[in-house]
């Protein structure tokens, strides 16, 4: 029932990663899983719970979807480069091959680095922390770095230079035989095309770093000077999204704007539903975040691709879907 051989591999991978980052001078930190506020992310649903405090007043608390909120405070306070391996929580995720509502995340911030440096940092880390006696094909092949612009043209025939216009993007979706809903948002139509044509076509036999995401997808990465894109990448192995990375936004005005817009969107979408509406962190926009790149990597997924699996389920000693079946 319990796969102890896989548990041993997980332990080895986590130890290798810790040794690697500590050897490079990163500080390993440990930050809370429960927080009274989060970074507003309308596409990520949070688990809410309640802290009972009889005398000073009870408060709603939320399980973190990533430790970003705390780690950036440490960066702003002068921690230098830091990393953390922790449990993260995402509600309303479907239970499936590469999804479990509670999962293990590696989050690593490198002070002074940008998104491009982080590709090298990540390639090296993955190579140096590989498992003993296991030599997957994807690790022997040279990683591919491809921009979203190039990938959308190559696999979907969509010109991202014109895709700023929702009308163009919608017409392209229809040309490709997709059914974008009436008044569908730019993000959803883009993702329909991306998920149907582009993502499944990315090479599966190596690490693929998909760079320069569209500016229109809101996130806390810097704008690129190259075009209407963000300094953000996502990394895939065997078609599975393993990691993402930002050249972290340091402009307080941009961060404040992101917080205001995304929190409003989140509040509007969730009002009247049973979904938690976590307050936005009030002090986040005033942080003096230094130039840094931040990566987040799903370690259950990384372990799965090391072991040649398409699913993280066999690697979880207690997967939620198993527990719910009992």
């Amino acid at each position: 029932m319990y796969d102890f051989a896989a548990a041993r591999k997980r332990s080895e991978l986590l130890m290798n990663i810790r040794e690697h980052f500590i050897g490079k001078g990163y500080l390993e930190v440990s930050t809370p899983s429960l927080s009274p506020y989060l970074i507003p992310e309308p596409t990520i649903k949070a688990f809410g719970t309640r802290f009972i405090n009889e005398f000073e007043g009870s408060r709603d608390l939320y399980l973190i979807p990533s430790p970003e909120i705390f780690m950036k405070k440490l960066l702003a306070a002068g921690s230098g480069s830091i990393f953390q391996i922790s449990s993260c929580f995402r509600n309303a995720e479907q239970l499936g091959d590469v999804h479990n509502p509670e999962f293990t995340m590696l989050e690593y911030y490198t002070v002074g680095a940008d998104d491009r440096d982080s590709i090298d940092i990540t390639i090296e880390m993955i190579e140096k922390t590989k498992l003993r006696g296991i030599d997957p094909e994807w690790l022997r092949n040279k990683p591919l770095i491809i921009s979203m612009h190039e990938a959308m043209m190559k696999y979907a025939g969509v010109d991202m230079d014109k895709a700023e216009s929702i009308d163009y993007l919608r017409a392209e979706a229809l040309r490709l035989g997709l059914n974008p809903g009436e008044n569908e948002s730019w993000d959803d139509t883009f993702n329909r095309i991306f998920l149907t044509y582009t993502e499944p076509s990315l090479p599966k036999d190596r690490e693929v770093y998909l760079t320069d995401y569209p500016d229109r997808i809101a996130c806390l990465a810097k704008h690129s000077e190259k075009g209407p894109t963000k300094k953000r990448w996502e990394m895939y192995i065997n078609g599975i999204e393993i990691a993402n990375c930002y050249d972290e936004e340091t402009d307080k005005n941009e961060t404040e704007k992101y917080f205001a817009e995304e929190w409003e969107k989140l509040r509007e979408e969730r009002s009247g539903t049973e979904e938690a509406i976590p307050p936005a962190d009030p002090s986040f926009s005033s942080l003096d975040i230094p130039q840094s790149s931040g990566g987040a990597m799903g370690l259950d997924r990384l372990l799965a691709v090391h072991l040649g699996l398409n699913s993280i389920e066999p690697l979880l000693l207690f997967s939620l879907s198993d527990m719910l079946r009992q």
Partner: peptide, 9 residues
Amino acid sequence: FVNPGKGSA
């Protein structure tokens, strides 16, 4: 199931 980074399910 696919949850694109920063996208809907």
